[in-house]
Design a protein around this nucleic acid. Structure first.
Lengths: 329, 329
DNA sequence: TTGAAAGCGATACCAG
DNA sequence: CTGGTATCGCTTTCAA
């Protein structure tokens, strides 16, 4: 691979000049530029990004931590982020945190040791204090789907509580009063917030929450199955079921089918997230839309603006969820 | 951030020695090592990976190109690859090729300019010749799900034809004779191979293929919907439907429901890939298992062995698909 | 507008 | 086992 030095020799200019045409930072005389470009062409020169990083103290890489690489939710998030950065000539380094505090911290350290210019974090387990410290350490990062006091300006979130509210409100408006709820793990902020929204809606409609109609799931399909069966065993009848996310709703629907129940006639079901295949279920799932693509894009833009000084205007920090009515309610 | 030089000063040793304890390459006297480690500790030293890369000519990063970042298939693939490399202290840089030749080439160039030590490619559109050239250029890479003549030793594939055969064979064994087929885009190698398998099975059972029972889809859910409707409009009755992948099978099932057909009583459906949520469908989807996790792992190990000289024994290049019977047949 | 030269923070070879 | 030093390929003052 040709080096900048060889290019400069061939073009008969100095090494510094070649650097200038590469980065087109300060003006270069047209004739010179052409000579250099011709030389680069001839040698098939491509800058060594590692050397560039070392000299400029910028790696042009952004680290991303998500809970899982798989799954429809993260897939879409990553996809959007990669797209945005790719267009800007940056690249992403991805690590999984597996919703585990140690792994999340590991991932962050790992990416940091990789000299990432910035991080985009979707972490659930690490403590707020750790994140605040991290911010103080000078590392630029944005936080997705989590609001942490003290570093609000780095948080991009969905109003999960509002989403939870919408879901249950809809059920109430449809006339349901016996509404079961399968939440995500309550130690996760979003799961708790969605559940809070549920309770708020019940209160608004003066419906008492019945603890027998609550089940704490795991945000996975099996959680929906187990939750549904558990709720049925409690003996308290319910005509509607609100789930903390689509995966669990899907599991609940499967369990309902197996119990011989009709959806939505006997039990109406609503999910949360509007993941890609929430219409694969039968019947198609009513849900709350989580604008994951927009949020991913916004996170990327945050970095572009704050870290790379790109002129970006519309930075939005709070997103509002929306009800998507399909056939399961 | 402390540099290796500061550590060497504090420890009272040479810069070279510090490097030695970091990489523990050649032996270092215990006392010296301890001094150095203490110094590193005190300064909170962490090696600058960019400088390491420049000096050692190794970036410890592996580039990956997949068609899409989202979706259950790629999610699982990436997840497994990341895991494997993470454990080895390497990191992955991911780019999307979107099944488009130009974008795929761009992605490869992009990753290459990032000085990746190796590439793992799941590319569908670029021509074989390009890949052969790429190999000749000296860039180490493995190819997933594609067999290219001339660089066989870099290919890790599933026997797609065998999978296609298995699917149709199963339908035939169940007594079906009017079997419709919805393929993926036939310009994609795997789509074509799966279809070949289908034809082989028909031939084996001496069943004539009926062109009215074939539809070329897009590997997406909508392709399944459209394909199913198209096939029905042809007027040729069929009691079984073989799909080129699970997404299309899922779409076909939805379309069948809408047409008021019972599955599997009136139409038996089988997919291909066994993606995570193929049991979200109702009824649960019978399919052909694509061992995506194993293949991802194998690709990572290939790199670990060939590029980083890790002692790895069992490199497997060809994987055999397996029939998974569920409720849709 | 261009050139010369000093780093950036490590690795690795060559002596000792 | 340890130290000195050239080197990796590029960016970035500082002068001219």
């Amino acid at each position: 691979m040709a080096t900048i030095y060889q290019v400069s020799e061939l073009a008969g200019v100095s090494l510094a000049t070649v650097s200038r045409v590469i980065n087109n930072t300060v003006p270069v005389r047209e004739a010179t530029r052409l000579k250099v470009e011709a030389a680069m062409q001839e040698l098939g020169y491509r800058p060594n990004s590692v050397a560039q990083s070392l000299a400029s103290n910028r790696s042009n890489s952004i680290g991303i931590v998500v809970s899982e690489l798989g799954g429809p939710f993260y897939g879409e998030l990553l996809s959007r982020i990669e797209n945005e950065f790719r267009a800007a000539g940056k690249h992403v380094i991805i690590a999984a945190g597996h919703s585990n505090a140690d792994l999340e911290r590991d991932s962050i350290e790992f990416l940091r040791s990789r000299n990432c210019d910035a991080l985009i974090l979707h972490v659930e387990a690490v403590h707020d204090a750790y994140l605040v410290e991290l911010a103080e350490s000078g590392l630029p990062f944005v936080l997705i789907n989590r609001m942490v006091a003290g570093i609000e300006e780095r948080c991009i979130t969905l109003d999960n509580e509002q989403g939870g509210y919408l879901a249950t409100e809809y059920m109430l408006q449809q006339g349901h009063r016996d509404i079961a709820y399968i939440s995500g793990p309550l130690w996760k902020h979003d799961a708790q917030e969605r559940y809070n929204g549920h309770q708020k809606a019940l209160a608004k409609f003066a419906v008492c929450e019945n603890k027998a109609l609550f089940y704490e799931g795991d945000f996975q399909e099996t959680g929906g199955v187990n939750g549904f069966n558990h709720l049925r065993e409690q003996g308290h009848a319910f005509t509607a079921l609100v789930c903390g996310n689509d995966e669990m709703a899907s599991g609940a629907i499967t369990a309902a089918h197996e119990a011989g129940l009709d959806i939505p006639e006997q039990v109406a079901v609503i999910g949360f997230d509007n993941i890609n295949f929430s219409h694969y279920t039968h019947p198609k799932l009513t849900t709350i839309d989580y604008p994951v693509a927009e949020i991913g894009q916004m996170a990327a833009r945050w970095v572009l603006k704050r870290v790379y000084q790109r002129p970006i205007e519309d930075l939005q920090a709070l997103f509002i969820p929306q009800l998507i009515v399909r056939d399961s309610t």
